[in-house]
């Protein structure tokens, strides 16, 4: 019991760190994007201000019970992945609840949030919500293909599905990272992360020009606040997953921040450069080069 409270405390502290880092990271990305477009960009405090504003809005409407559950499922998804993901290796304190489930749990928990969000948005009754969700689901299902192949390849390589063990096997210098020992899996995974992060060319799901209204408009006030909170956490946590899988994990918070930033930056970088795909294009795209990379990754370690 004693250890449990300690673990819970450190987990919540870790969540706070991740949340704030996520907000800061989004501010950095927005500023960088603005500078590229020769604008000044938002002030640094903007993400925090947005959150406070959203939570403070007084007038609010709801479409029904499921409408509440949408953001809650989504946020649970983000926090859930956080809970089951080891953050800092080498210290028992920052491993969160990763002892309860391995990689498979994390992979399937990604769907928890997505499913709930889909249901919640559907409750709003807005037709564009449904369009967005169907696009999101279509895309997400194919994104998982190269990712699964990459993870399978890693599991075969390290003979384990435990994320902690995979990270620990990558300790002891750059050369042990999966990036070098299993480049094809890394490549497949890094292509998959483009889809997960939801930036261009895979941002048809929430593309502002395509769907000017729908979930972003129907969800407002505290609902939107929860979704924005989740976005901050989720981006960091997803980047942390890839960090643990391919880039040797993190032994301290400084390393954690640098690596997650770089991984997230990769997706933003690609997003700034490339235009948007249609759904059938993105579905086909993931089943070409990323799929082949994943297959090669498995063959090499079979």
């Amino acid at each position: 019991m004693d250890f449990d409270l300690k673990r819970l405390g450190f987990t919540l502290l870790g969540l706070l760190i991740v949340l704030n880092w996520g907000l800061l990271m989004s501010a950095i990305m927005r500023k960088m994007g603005a500078r590229v477009a020769r604008r000044y960009g938002i002030p640094w405090r903007q993400p925090w201000v947005d959150l406070v504003k959203n939570y403070a809005i007084r007038s609010q409407i709801t479409h029904g019970v499921m409408f509440y559950l949408g953001p809650v499922f989504r946020f649970s998804g983000g926090v859930g992945i956080f809970l089951f993901m080891p953050m800092i290796i080498g210290s028992k304190l920052w491993l969160n609840y990763s002892f309860q489930g391995d990689l498979v749990l994390i992979m399937y928990f990604q769907f928890f949030g997505m499913l709930g969000m889909a249901l919640g948005a559907g409750e709003g009754g807005h037709p564009h919500s449904a369009i967005g969700i169907s696009r999101g689901l279509s895309q997400f299902t194919v994104i998982e293909v190269p990712l699964t192949l990459a993870i399978l390849s890693l599991a075969i390589q390290y003979q384990t599905l435990s994320l902690v063990d995979i990270v620990e096997a990558q300790q002891g210098g750059f050369q042990n990272w999966s990036m070098w020992t299993n480049p094809f899996a890394t490549a497949a995974g890094m292509l998959a992360i483009l889809g997960i992060m939801g930036h261009s060319p895979f941002n048809l799901v929430k593309a502002p020009n395509e769907i000017p209204i729908g979930p972003p408009t129907e969800y407002h006030a505290t609902f939107l606040g929860v979704l924005r909170t989740n976005a901050a956490v989720l981006h960091v946590v997803e980047a942390a997953l890839f960090m643990n899988l391919f880039f040797g994990g993190a032994t301290n918070w400084f390393e954690f921040i640098i690596k997650t930033f770089l991984i997230y930056f990769w997706s933003v970088f690609v997003g700034v450069v490339f235009p948007r795909f249609r759904i059938e294009q993105s579905v086909s795209w993931f089943l070409k080069v990323p799929l082949v990379l994943g297959i090669i990754a498995i063959i090499l370690f079979m």
């Binding site: 509440y68 649970s76 859930g80 002892f99 309860q100 391995d102 990689l103 749990l105 384990t160 609902f223």
Partner: peptide
């Protein structure tokens, strides 16, 4: 041989988290 899973623990963790977040939003 490869991984581990604690079914009840996962359910409890997720349950508590979900209920907490739901209550907070409500």
């Amino acid at each position: 041989a490869y991984g581990y899973w604690h079914g009840t623990g996962v359910m409890v963790t997720i349950g508590i988290m979900f209920v907490t977040l739901l209550t907070w939003l409500l």
